[in-house]
Design a protein around this nucleic acid. Structure first.
Length: 543
RNA sequence: GGUCGGUUCGUAUAACGGUUAGUACUCAAGAUUCUCAAUCUUGCAAUAGGGGUUCGAUUCCCCUACCGACUACCA
């Protein structure tokens, strides 16, 4: 029986989506698309206590930013679908809105003898657990203990039926079979066996909330939504036997999905899994988007930190998966084609912030000047620059736009001027945010001069030559381009027998404020003769 | 503690019984250049330990160590 591939990402709206969660969603998405199937998003909000307002919206927005677009579960506006339709026959996709459908499944299990009513309160169980732990023992609610607890198996029928009526805090628990070996297959880990005696009678349904727990809701919904593969985090592997048994109890083993458990993302250093604290400590985001919690605490996001979504997706894909060859750069389409669960790594992947930066750098280099200019212009505007598309219409009386497209006095620049610059500096940066530090001097004259460089180069025997070189540039008569200027300028310095390094660095120091930066020919042809003259004049005035 | 999973350079990983154990990031050195960056070249650096199986183990099995997940009326 061939079924259409249908996979789901089922987050719980208890906070912002961690990058590990995004990776899980990504792998689901890639798998679905590769098999021509559907990627479904389902919100698992059965824990009313941990619900966080805004988390659901955040999750969908984050996935959307990454280009992980659900086929089902969310409408075109990015809202979780609440009512069934032709396009969304399995709606609603929020478990809190599906509450009506779970109870009958839980009770079906009780009727069939696979589950029972339990009346122990959380407090009673808690103290029992504590008492046993004090003796160095482990409390498990299962075959070893259930007959001494209060439930429909241990109590007389009249008694538990009375409790069922009079109380509203009971639960339905799964009756874990005694001494059975559950044999499971995982698409990533292979064959796994577990003896049921080590498992407990999990709560399936909570009367107090009129809501199922994860285990029941998950199995029922995966079945109802015709899910074919469940790709989820490693933390679910221990409950896989329960889930197998649940499918069996319902008689759904024929249509049971196949399972794949992904390893976790680990800290860059030290022990343990990647957490928000690591990001704060080591200076990188662990969330796709910025998040502000109810206390006003801010968690930075990849988007706000200047990562391109393509880079983020790419680096996430390579954390725990590889194509089997040396290719490291993948577009989403390429990932869809190349992805395979067989090549997902079993062990936990330590996150490497340096590599993440490298990915962004690679994507930055691929961008066109027009794209980068559009991203950089808001930064420039924040710095007080005005960027115009059409020079003539924006100029106020008395301002002058140079041939290059710059009016330094009024800090007005054309988009073309910005494009020229980003094209020159894009291979020197990892982020658009680096642009300003790399080349602010192409917009404003340096206000400060690096002490170290001044000490090294700013000597009269150097700058007197540098000024002459500047004069040579100002008097240059050919078309004022880097290609035209570079050779003659060097020839001029060389033919005078001047030390090239000293003259050039001195001139650069005057124009840039430091002895590092673009080539002199690049700098002067970008800022233009007028600005060159202006900056030299200013420097001379201070001597 | 118990159950389950995992373990190749610092990190991500390749090699699915036979390789001088490869690649990328990081780091270092050199080349280049008017400096810086970029680029190119080179280098540092790994099969957790111990037993098997085998002509031969990174690869298969067992033990130990270490790491992780789970052990809630949370997901």
């Amino acid at each position: 029986m061939e079924r259409k591939t249908r996979v789901r990402f089922a987050p719980s709206p208890t906070g912002p989506l961690h990058m590990g969660g995004v990776r899980t969603a990504l792998y689901n998405y890639l798998y679905a698309k590769q098999h021509g199937g559907d990627f479904i998003i389902r919100i698992e909000d059965t824990d009313s206590q941990r619900f966080v307002p805004g988390a659901e919206k955040y999750i969908i927005e984050a996935l959307n930013w990454c280009g992980i677009i659900p086929d089902e579960g969310v409408d075109a506006e990015g809202n979780v679908v609440e009512t069934a339709s032709e396009r969304h026959p399995h709606a609603p996709y929020r478990q809190s809105q599906r509450r009506g459908i779970y109870r009958k499944y839980a009770e079906e299990l009780v009727e069939k003898g696979f589950a029972y009513y339990a009346f122990d309160t959380a407090e009673e169980l808690g103290s029992k657990r504590a008492a046993m732990e004090a003796e160095g023992l482990t409390f498990i609610y299962n075959g070893t203990s259930r007959m001494s607890l209060r439930n429909s198996l241990s109590l007389a029928e009249s008694e538990w039926k009375e409790l069922l009526e009079s109380r509203t805090d009971w639960t339905i628990r799964f009756k874990m079979p005694h001494d059975r070996v559950v044999k499971m297959d995982d698409l990533i880990r292979g064959h796994v066996e577990v003896n049921t005696d080590t498992l407990d009678d999990k709560v399936l349904w909570k009367r107090a909330d009129e809501l199922p727990t994860y285990h029941l809701a998950n199995i029922v919904d995966d079945h109802l939504m015709e899910i074919t593969e469940v790709i989820r985090g490693e933390e679910w592997l221990p409950s896989l036997p329960l889930h197998y048994l649940l499918y069996e109890a319902f008689g759904w083993q024929e249509s049971m999905p196949r399972f794949a458990h992904l390893s976790l993302l680990l800290k860059p250093d030290g022990k343990g899994k990647l957490s928000k604290r690591d990001g704060d400590r080591l200076g990188f985001p662990v969330f796709p988007l910025k998040w502000v919690n109810s206390e006003g605490e801010v968690s930075r996001g990849y988007r706000e930190d200047g990562y391109f979504p393509e880079a983020f997706v790419n680096l996430l894909a390579m954390l725990g998966w590889n194509p089997g060859n040396d290719q490291e750069l993948f577009s989403m389409e390429e990932l869809v084609a190349a992805f395979s669960l067989e090549r997902v790594i079993k062990s936990g992947a330590r996150f490497n912030p340096d590599k993440a930066k490298w990915y962004n750098k690679e994507y930055l280099r691929k961008k066109t000047a027009a794209e980068l200019a559009s991203l950089y212009i808001p930064v420039l505007e924040e710095k007080g620059m005005q960027i115009v598309d059409c020079p003539k219409c924006a100029l106020t009386a008395g301002s002058e736009m140079t041939q290059q497209g710059a009016d330094f006095k009024n800090r007005i620049f054309t988009r073309g001027y910005v494009e020229r610059i980003v094209a020159l500096i894009q291979e020197r940066a990892s982020f658009v945010a680096d642009f300003w530090d790399i080349a602010s001097y192409l917009f404003i004259a340096p206000a400060e001069f690096a002490e170290k460089d001044v000490a090294k180069f700013w000597k009269e025997e150097n700058y007197s030559l540098a000024f002459q070189a500047a004069d040579f540039i100002l008097n240059f008569e050919g078309e004022f381009t880097k290609e035209n200027l570079e050779g003659p300028l060097e020839e001029y310095i060389r033919s005078n027998g001047w030390p090239m390094g000293k003259v050039m660095n001195c001139l650069r120091l005057a124009l840039v404020g430091a002895s590092s930066g673009l080539g002199i020919a690049d700098i002067v042809t970008i800022i233009g003769k007028a600005e060159l003259a202006e900056r030299i004049k200013k420097i001379k005035a201070t001597l």
